[in-house]
Design a protein around this nucleic acid. Structure first.
Lengths: 338, 338
DNA sequence: TTGTATGCGTTATCAG
DNA sequence: CTGATAACGCATACAA
C-alpha cells in the first residue's frame, strides 16, 4: 500500500498539516522540522495523491487541447505543448474535436461538467464552433486560441504573422523573376487563409504586378487540395511559373502533382508553402516555406492560459509572432528570367 | 456552483445512494424513482465529479502512453489510441520518455507514485529501460508493449508481423528482377529490426540468391539514417538495384538521397520501406511499403490493458498481427531485367 | 428496493 | 510555528 500523508506525519511525529506545508513548500516551518519531515517522506517514498488534491482544490490541473484530426501537421506543436505543460505541472488532455459533431460536443461538455479540465486551447478549425464558445462562457473555462479561425472578442489568441509571411514569400518569388504566381487559398472562412492571401496581393501591388483572379485557386489546406489545385493551375491557358500553396500540406500535394505531370520543380515551376512542417525539408527538392514558430506559440499559449487560471491579468491578449522564410530547392529563378 | 450528488438527491427526494445507483446504472431501482432522479439530474445539469470518484475508487482512469520524441511517425497510432480510449472511458496521458534520462525517470516515477495513471503502453524504444520495468513491477502497474524492443517475460505485447512483411517485400523485389537488394537495418537491439532482417534473408534463401554482407547497412530508423545509408549503398563497387529501408522514415531519406544524386526512382533504383506511414503515399513517386496495422494495434493494446486493469485473464498475451504489401511508384522492374 | 454512515487523502480554517 | 478538525464529492458496507 502506498504511503499517505498520515503515515509521514506519524513517522515524523508532526501533524499532517505540517507535512502538507513541507510538501507544498510553504513558509512557517522550522528548518529542523522540515528536514525531519523530508526524511520521513523519503524513507516512506511518499508522494501526494493527486486525486485527493484535485478534489479539495476543485481543480484538475489538466489542460485540454482541441485538435482536428486529419493531419500529421500538428505533431510538432503537440510535442512542444506536452513539454511546456510538464514545466507548469499541468497534464495535457488531447481531444479530437470536430465542430458541429454531436459526439464531439457531448464529450467536451462532459469534460467540463465533470471538472476534468481547467482550461482549453483550440487549434484550427476547432474554434469555428458556437457551441464551444457558449460552453466556455457559461462554465467560465479559460480558453486560448491558436491561429484562430475567427478572432473572438475577449478571447485571447496567439498566431504567426500570416500576412507578413505571405508578403515576404511572394516578394521572394517576384525577386526570382516570377510574374505569374498562382496562390492556393485555404478555407475562406479561416482568418489565416485570408491574411495569407492579402500578403500575396500586397506583394503584387508593391511590385506593380497585375492581380489575376484566375491565379487564385480555392483549395483545401491538405495534400489532396494542393494536388487538385496544382493540376487546375497548370491547365490554365497561361499557366503560372510559380505556385504558392497556402500551407505546406497543400504544397506537398503540388509537388507530387507536378512530378506526376512531368513538370520539373523548380526548373519549370517553383513551389512554396507555408508553415514549415518537419516533412517539408524531407521531400525532394525541399519545399521552400514560411517558418511558423510553433514552439513559441505553444509556449506562449500555455503561459497565457496558466496566467488566466491563476486569475492574473494578461499583459497581451492578442499575440502575433514574426515568421521567417526558409528557402529550399523548390523555388528557383523563373524560366525566362535573366 | 456546479451541482453535486446531494443537490440531486434533495431535488429528487431520495438518498444520495439512490442517485449514485442511477448514475452508475446499477440495478435495484424502481423505474419510477429512476426517472425522477434522471429528471433531477437533467434539470440541474449534474455530472459526477471525476476527482471525487477517482479518490474513492483509488484509480485514475488514465492510461499513459510512452512515446519517444523525434518523429512524426506515430501520429496515426496516437490518433487511434485517443479514439479507442474514449470508448473505454479512459483518458490518455501522452508522455515523452527517453530511456535512461533522469528527468524522464523522475517524471514517470511520480506519475505512478501520485497515482495519476493506472496503466502503461510503451512504444519503441521506450521499453528498453530496466528502470521502467522495475517500476511497473514494484507498483504492479499493468503494461502493454507495442512492437517491443525486447519481448519481456510475462509482459504482454502486440506487434505486426515484421518477419513476414519483410519476406513478402523482398520477394516482391526479387520478382521484379532485382538481384542486388540493399537492406537498411534499424537498431540491432530492436527486435523488429532483426525480424525484418531475417525476413529479407529468408526471401534471398528461398530464391537461392547469395547473401552479400556489404548490402546490409546499419542505419537509424529515421530520415537521416536512410539518407546516409543510401549514399553509402550507392558508393559500393557493385551498387544495388533496389534499396529496402527498414522503415518508411528511412525510406524517405533514401528517396531524397537518390534524387539528390540524380538517380531515377524506380527506373535505376527501386526503393521500399516498412510501416506505411501516411506521408509515404504523398512523396513522389509514392513509397512502396509494408502496411503496419496501427489501428488494430491500438485497439488491441488498449483492450489488453483494460482487461488487465479489470483483473481479467488475457486470452492471448503475445499478439502478432498480419501485415500486407502496399505497392506504389518507388518499386519497379530491375533495369536489366526482362 | 432504499437509506445511513464512514472513509478516500488532501488542503484550509482557525485556534493554540 | 504548529496542530486538530472540517470540508471536498463520491462510493460502498451495512442496515432497514
Amino acid at each position: 500500500m502506498a504511503a499517505t500523508i498520515k503515515d509521514v506525519a506519524r513517522l515524523a511525529e508532526v501533524s499532517i498539516k505540517t507535512v502538507s506545508r513541507v510538501v507544498n513548500q510553504e513558509a512557517h516551518v522550522t528548518e529542523m522540522v522540515r528536514t525531519r519531515v523530508q526524511q520521513a517522506i523519503d524513507s516512506l517514498g511518499y508522494a501526494p495523491n493527486i486525486s485527493a488534491r484535485r478534489l479539495v482544490q476543485q481543480r484538475s490541473y489538466v489542460i485540454c487541447i482541441l485538435l482536428h484530426t486529419g493531419g500529421v501537421s500538428q505533431s510538432a506543436l503537440i510535442h512542444k505543448i506536452l513539454e511546456v505543460a510538464y514545466e507548469y505541472d499541468y497534464d495535457i488532455l488531447i481531444q479530437t474535436y470536430f465542430p458541429s459533431l454531436t459526439r464531439s460536443k457531448n464529450k467536451l461538455a462532459s469534460l467540463i461538467a465533470e471538472r476534468r479540465i481547467d482550461g482549453l486551447v483550440t487549434t484550427p478549425p476547432c474554434d469555428t464552433d458556437e457551441f464551444l464558445l457558449n460552453l466556455v462562457r457559461k462554465a467560465h473555462i479559460p480558453l486560448v486560441q491558436i491561429t484562430p479561425y475567427n478572432r473572438i472578442d475577449g478571447i485571447p489568441f496567439i498566431s504567426g504573422d500570416d500576412y507578413q509571411g505571405a508578403l515576404m514569400m511572394a516578394e521572394h518569388l517576384i525577386g526570382l523573376g516570377h510574374r505569374r504566381i498562382a496562390f492556393l487559398m485555404g478555407p475562406r472562412s479561416h482568418r489565416a487563409s485570408i491574411d495569407r492571401l492579402y500578403g500575396y496581393r500586397a506583394a503584387l501591388d508593391l511590385h506593380h504586378l497585375a492581380y489575376d483572379e484566375c491565379l487564385v485557386l480555392d483549395s483545401e489546406f491538405n495534400f489532396d487540395g494542393g494536388y487538385t489545385a496544382a493540376r487546375m493551375a497548370m491547365a490554365l491557358t497561361d499557366p503560372p511559373s510559380a505556385i504558392f500553396a497556402g500551407n505546406d500540406e497543400a504544397g506537398l500535394g503540388v509537388i507530387y502533382a507536378l512530378n506526376e505531370m512531368g513538370i520539373a520543380v523548380p526548373e519549370r515551376v517553383s513551389v512554396c508553402g507555408f508553415d514549415d512542417l518537419s516533412q517539408s525539408k524531407n521531400v525532394w527538392p525541399g519545399l521552400s516555406s514560411v517558418h511558423y514558430p510553433v514552439n513559441e506559440i505553444a509556449e506562449q499559449a500555455l503561459e497565457m492560459l496558466v496566467a488566466m487560471l491563476q486569475n492574473k491579468e494578461l499583459q497581451q491578449k492578442q499575440v502575433i509572432l514574426p515568421v521567417r522564410l526558409v528557402l529550399r530547392g523548390s523555388t528557383g529563378s523563373a524560366a525566362g528570367a535573366g
